[in-house]
């Protein structure tokens, strides 16, 4: 199953999204949170993220969902740290909450990494206007 790593500046945000995604997708523990610094401070840590990616991979690849700014930069650095380890890890260009839920559902269906990333990225087009569905 494709693994999912949630990256946020805040440990609580990453763990909260992980908890929500686990609940929605009934995942088998392949969704990992890599939020904040090791001591719980606000920030992102490329080494922690690369450890989480390694732990999330069972051979099917890992989708990474990052929040913003240095979260993305640290996620990209984490991917480079894993160069040569043979893990098919990809960053989703997606909103972190909606993208993580969509990715978790897709992964739980048994889809491959490309499908999981596509599902996460399409989540940005989901409207929050219940009445119009985002149509003008």
């Amino acid at each position: 199953m494709v693994g999912i790593v949630i990256v946020s500046h805040s440990r609580k945000i990453a763990e909260g999204i992980q908890e929500l995604a686990e609940q929605v997708a009934a995942s088998s523990g392949r969704i990992l949170a890599a939020g904040g610094l090791e001591d719980g401070e606000i920030g992102t840590d490329a080494v922690r993220i690369s450890d989480a990616i390694r732990a999330a991979d069972d051979g099917d690849g890992v989708a990474v969902l990052a929040d913003l700014g240095s979260g993305i930069m640290s996620a990209e650095t984490a991917v480079e740290l894993l160069d040569g380890e043979g893990i098919d890890v990809r960053l989703a260009d997606a909103p972190v909450v909606e993208g993580a839920i969509a990715a978790a559902v897709e992964a739980a269906c048994g889809s491959g990494i490309a499908e999981v990333i596509r599902a996460a990225e399409e989540a940005r087009f989901v409207s929050k206007n219940i009445e119009t569905g985002g149509r003008p």
Partner: peptide, 11 residues
């Protein structure tokens, strides 16, 4: 990378 926390960490 591990301890700075902000964008200057990866940079």
């Amino acid at each position: 990378l591990s301890t700075v926390g902000g964008a200057s960490g990866p940079l």
